[in-house]
């Protein structure tokens, strides 16, 4: 779809990439939209429409962290999450 955008980034813990973390994409109302698992290098990627999004990471040891991003159409939006 031409109206899509890409939100991608990495999850880190103590400066090191966190593989196997669960990353959720929540819309501006906090509604779950998607979830992916980070790669060995801590990377994740979503397709989403332009707008405001929250990206929340959940990892072992009850580690949780989130960040919010503004995704613009036609651009790749980077989101870094430190646990």
């Amino acid at each position: 779809m031409a109206t899509e955008t890409v939100i991608q980034g990495t999850v880190t813990r103590g400066g090191q990439p966190e593989g196997g973390a669960y990353v959720r994409l929540l819309d501006s109302t906090g509604e779950f939209t998607a979830e992916v698992v980070t790669s060995a290098t801590g990377a994740f990627r979503f397709f989403a429409r332009p707008g405001s999004w929250t990206v929340r990471a959940l990892a072992s040891g009850d580690a949780v962290a989130e960040t919010t991003v503004e995704a613009d159409q036609g651009a790749v939006t980077e989101a870094a999450i430190a646990l």
Binding site: M1, T3, E4, L25, T33, A34, E35, V36, R45, F46, F47, A48, R49
Partner: peptide, 11 residues
């Protein structure tokens, strides 16, 4: 109707 598939999957 904004998307045809979940946001993490190909549309």
């Amino acid at each position: 109707g904004k998307l045809l598939a979940p946001a993490h999957l190909p549309q």
